[in-house]
């Protein structure tokens, strides 16, 4: 503001007040001729033009439109190709969470119950969707790509308890050829081999192990049709 915009009051020292506002004058040049006559109706031009454009209204919930592929929706805990869980219970997601929405407890993998490759798995995994702000920092923190976000956006519920998703609610469903955990790792592999993607699916030893300890397991049926004692490799 230039100095001459301010009137200095004689008695008031440094304190200045803005100069009284002048009468309003539009800076736009006024229309003339036909334009001046049609001016009141010109605003409807947008309305009339829209009538001939395609509609964007979505009839949710009667029609569900897919989101953009990178939409931040409900979380998912992924699995390795042989069905073992990717989550190792490291709690880095909980640590990264700015809303304190995630709670994790780790535990030991044992020979009887191997849930994930390596020594450690997530025994308790909870996400509180009343707190989650879908920022995705947890996804960035996850060292094993176990936690990703799906495009599922229908997250509402009548109870507080129902909005706390447990591990079984978040775990990805078994994909084609996957064997439900727990079962041993592919013989001869380390957890690093899983992270590098060197494991392509369950091997006969794993299938046999599940057949021995959990013969009624549903994921066995696809991998080991009845009557076949030895399943095909990978």
């Amino acid at each position: 503001m230039a100095d001459d915009d301010i009137t200095r009051r004689d008695q008031a020292g440094e304190v200045g007040a803005p100069r009284p506002a002048a009468e309003y004058e539009s800076l736009l040049p006024g229309k003339s001729g036909l334009g001046e006559i049609l001016a009141p109706a010109a605003g409807f031009g947008v309305t009339f033009a829209s009538m001939f454009k395609p509609t964007v209204t979505e009839q949710y919930p009667y029609e569900k439109v897919p989101t953009k592929p990178r939409y931040h929706g409900r979380h998912q805990l992924n699995r390795h190709p042989d069905g073992l869980e990717k989550c190792i219970g490291c709690e880095l997601c909980a640590w990264a969470c700015p809303a304190d929405a995630i709670y994790v407890e780790g535990a030991d993998n044992t020979p009887d119950a191997q849930f994930s490759p390596g020594e450690r798995y997530g025994r308790v995994y909870q996400i509180n969707y009343l707190r989650c702000i879908f920022c995705g920092l947890c996804i960035e923190a996850c060292p094993t790509r176990a936690l990703t976000m799906t495009n599922d956006y229908e997250l509402a519920g009548p109870t507080r308890r129902g909005m706390i998703y447990e591990k079984q609610d978040l775990l990805a469903p078994l994909g084609d050829g996957m064997l439900a955990a727990p079962h041993p790792m592919v013989p001869g592999t380390e957890d690093d081999d899983y992270y590098r993607g060197d494991v392509a699916g369950p091997v006969p030893e794993q299938i046999d192990w599940v057949a021995q300890w959990r013969p009624e397991d549903e994921s066995l049926a696809a991998l080991r049709p009845a009557g076949h004692e030895q399943s095909e490799a990978r």
Partner: peptide, 9 residues
Amino acid sequence: YRFRSRPFD
């Protein structure tokens, strides 16, 4: 204490 918790917990 193996795998039980993290310091921030």
